[in-house]
Amino acid sequence: MSDAEQPSNGRGRVTVPRTRKLYIGGSFPRSESGRVRPVRDAHGEFLANAALASRKDLREAVVAARKGFESWSGATAHGRGQVLFRVAEMLEARRGQFATEVADAEGLSLRAAADSVETAVDRVFWYAGWTDKIGALFGSVNQVSGPYTCHSVPEPVGVVGVVAPRESALLGLVSVLAPVLAAGNSAVVLASPDRPLPAVTLCEVLATSDLPAGVANVLTGDPGELAPWLASHEDVDALDPSGAEESLRARLEDAAAETVKRVLDVPVREPDWNEPPTPKRLRTFTDLKTVWHPLGR
């Protein structure tokens, strides 16, 4: 158990514990099922109880994400960038807390965890800068034959379901969440089942970063139980199965097939999240819209 979470410290002070809840529509509810599950650190020591989200929580999260999408996709790209930069600022400010949590969750030394947290801050910062450049990157003015002007612009796909990486509790999580948000989508994230605490703390950062309610929704619990429902949900537009175990992949792809949902093509083995990212995730979570209009006097 980390220092901050000790029930009593050396001076005999009894600390105040924090209840870990879900993050849905900008608030922090308990699971409607009332279920929790103990979270242990890399050495098996009890850290806290995390909410065990139910199918009903998932449904609520998708409803919230659809609402969040309306405001987030309607915001200017510049405005989305500002909010994501703010997320990076807030992460930076809580580096120490995150380093402790990541060290506990991933069994890293505090130094190594701090490095990972810094990369996570930089990752959010990197994606924040993309928001108003996606159009220049993926869009085009099409030189069509005929008296028309024709352009193609990338637009967010909508609500994206994200199965967050299992191992990299913070860096992995922001590496999959930031591109979804930067592209203008809202997200329903299933946090790492065994290492959910950094995700819960990230939600506190998101809740105080001017991110509109419902843009990011994070559920802790069992992805094996929830992910197929996320994949088959008719109001979820795309799926990132990054953290889904190999045994779950075929089920998710089969569930996503019913709505011909876009599924991000990702390797089964979790990559080294320290590797610099490419714009691929931004591209996958945008749809290109081509608009034609005549030119005439």
Binding site: V144, D237, T290, W292
Partner: peptide, 29 residues
């Protein structure tokens, strides 16, 4: 605001190899 891959303003059924054509959602992306 239209959730479609192509929008034709004051015209319809224009196709060109330079202009990406395709859909969203259940139209395949």
């Amino acid at each position: 605001r239209l959730r479609t891959g192509v929008v034709w303003g004051n015209t319809f059924h224009r196709f060109d190899p330079t202009a990406p054509f395709g859909g969203e959602r259940e139209s395949g992306s």
